[in-house]
């Protein structure tokens, strides 16, 4: 049985700092940039769904 990983305060603090940096970068975007990100994510998801439905082409 594997031992549960011990909490590592330095690593957790590093993750929190990483999340804070990401959050600040996002808050620096304009409203329109945030909206366009969402629209792009939707298009990307749609493309991924279409690709999944398309059968993989068999080699000649």
């Amino acid at each position: 049985m594997t031992q549960p990983e011990r909490p590592n305060p330095r690593r957790e603090a590093a993750w929190r700092e990483h999340e804070r940096r990401q959050r600040r970068a996002w808050l620096a975007l304009s409203f329109r940039e945030r909206l366009l990100w969402l629209e792009q994510a939707k298009r990307f998801r749609q493309l991924a769904l279409c690709a999944r439905k398309r059968p993989v082409q068999a080699p000649d």
Binding site: R23, W26, R34, L35, W37, L38, A41
Partner: peptide, 14 residues
């Protein structure tokens, strides 16, 4: 979700 994104949290919603 759209309001959440506009407030500054990037997450997907259709």
């Amino acid at each position: 979700g759209v309001a959440v994104v506009l407030h500054g949290h990037p997450r997907f919603t259709a």
